[in-house]
């Protein structure tokens, strides 16, 4: 279980994260959602240990990690642009961490990972020969070899297109279930967040706007911000798709949300 207690981060007088408290049960997927500049990447970096906290606590399984350095926390991250090492091929990227810690994973475990992520035929390829989805999978495999306690993913789908997005989504879910791995995902896309995760944390101006299961957010949004900026987007998407498939229009048209938004603004 990962607990964040009254997290605060300020750069000088500029407060980026303000009093964030929440609990992530082990094995769950949590998405951090919000507009750009809301502090979601900072929160990810704070959990990872890359950015120092101003105040508050990060507790994992009862142990206070707030002042434990990044390398010793046992968390790991896949960056948005994957940060694969171009001088090494796909396989050497995957086993990079084993050079420093031979016992992180057994050869059999590495093999299973390769199969799970469907990378067998790409192992000897150079990084620039891989497609976006393949790069993503190599980066995830490289991280999983280290058996992190918490897996952090920074915008994992934004560099991918169309169908690959959906297949990577499924794979992230499979991994979280199979390894009972707590996974935290940063995204700016409501559809991605709500369809991928067990819980969604919506940030606005460095504060928690809502932290709940996707269904709760859809049916009981806690603020007009969530209605205006998150649900409205989904409604428009839904309407467009319904229209495309020529189905009957849904009961609540997006327009009504827009009108309330206009009224509240």
């Amino acid at each position: 279980m990962l607990e964040l207690v009254n997290l605060k981060k300020a750069f000088g007088s500029h407060v980026v994260l303000d009093d964030i408290s929440l609990t992530v049960p082990t094995g769950e997927i949590v998405s951090i959602l919000g507009p750009s500049g809301c502090g979601k990447t900072t929160l990810l970096n704070v959990i990872l240990g890359l950015t120092e906290l101003t105040s508050g606590k990060i507790i994992y399984d009862g142990v206070d990690l707030s002042s434990v350095p990044m390398k010793k926390r046992g968390f790991n991250i896949v960056f948005q642009d994957f940060a694969l090492f171009p001088n090494l091929n796909a396989y050497d990227n995957i086993v990079y961490g084993l050079r420093n810690n031979k016992n992180a994973s057994t050869p059999a475990e590495v093999n299973d990972l390769i199969d799970l992520l469907n990378l067998r035929e790409h192992l000897s390829k150079r990084i620039d020969e891989l497609s976006g989805g393949q790069k993503q999978r190599v980066a995830i495999a490289r991280t999983l070899v280290m058996k992190p306690k918490v897996l952090l993913l920074d915008e994992p789908l934004s560099a991918l297109d169309g169908l690959i997005k959906e297949s990577i989504k499924e794979r992230i879910k499979t991994i979280a279930r199979q390894f009972n791995l707590t996974t935290i995902i940063v995204t700016h896309d409501p559809e991605e967040a709500l369809s991928l995760s067990d819980r969604v944390l919506i940030l606005n101006n460095g504060k928690v706007a809502q932290y709940a299961e996707p269904k709760t957010i859809i049916h009981a949004p806690e603020s007009s911000f969530i209605k205006d900026f998150i649900l409205k987007q989904l409604m428009i998407k839904r309407d467009n798709i319904f229209r495309l498939f020529d189905s009957t229009m849904p009961a609540v048209p997006a327009m009504s949300y827009m009108q309330t938004a206009a009224a509240s603004a």
Binding site: K71, D81, N87, G97, N100
Partner: peptide
């Protein structure tokens, strides 16, 4: 890539190892 050092550190590299294995080759 801006993530090289952090990624390598999370894989257990010291600064010199990252320099030798990633930064210099690239």
């Amino acid at each position: 890539n801006a993530g090289f050092e952090t990624t390598a550190a999370l894989m257990g590299d010291t600064w010199f190892q990252t320099l030798r294995r990633v930064v210099i080759p690239n």
